[in-house]
Amino acid sequence: MAASGIYVYGIVSSSHPLPPAARGVGEPPAEIRLLPAGELAVVVSATHPGLRARRRDLMAHQGLLLALAESGPVLPMRFGVVAPDEATVLRDVAARQSEHTGVLERLDARVEMNVKIMPVQDNLAALIREDPVVRRVREETRRNPGYEANVRLGEAVAAGLRRRAAVVAARLPAEFTEVADEMRPGPEVEGCVLNVSFLVPRRNEARFRAVAEQFAADHLDRLELRLSGPLPCYSFVGPESAPAKV
């Protein structure tokens, strides 16, 4: 396929080795190269015009970043960053070298762990018992049943489940004070009442997991917790950072 730019995966230190058999986006998977840039190196591959955010390529992007992270800190790019040519990449990275170096130091031996909390939808009886709004709408629906009434009831139930989960979810960040270095809210995700990422020292990963599991177990009746990680540190690449201590 005709070359149409350079796909940029991330930035590492100049001594960082490439993982064996590293492959990138595309079909067949593109060969990965390191572009040396002073104390840093940029992880790149060729790309093609048809590149889209497809499952396979998203996986390739993330898989490579995780493999790289095995041998040292990685500054991960967002999926889909394509530069017109090598010179452009190198110029840009050189201009921000000290900034990037600082971020790499901050990310060293750390991983991102993401926690999402969703309302559980299997405890309707408790909801009806405890939520006056839902109870009122339900009584109205029983008096005047029908399609419209059912939609209103369902809507009230969905909102009620969300409220129940959100109240408890707000207490989650404090639980991780001991095990995480930094915290940053994730983008809003439909259906989640909380989406938050933590920067966690690798040595604390098991403890982090245990805390999350305990929290989930303590609040089974109100929420479902989804833990993702270790991830490339997508949420902690900002240089300004020094985000609120957990």
Binding site: M77, R78, A83, A216, R226
Partner: peptide, 25 residues
């Protein structure tokens, strides 16, 4: 609960977080 995340569970991070460089496409 909790279970490990699927690709979908972190899609918004791969697409909305991570570093970008303005002049890059």
């Amino acid at each position: 609960v909790p279970r490990a995340g699927s690709l979908y569970d972190v899609l918004e991070l791969i697409l909305d977080r991570g570093m970008v460089i303005d002049i890059f496409v």
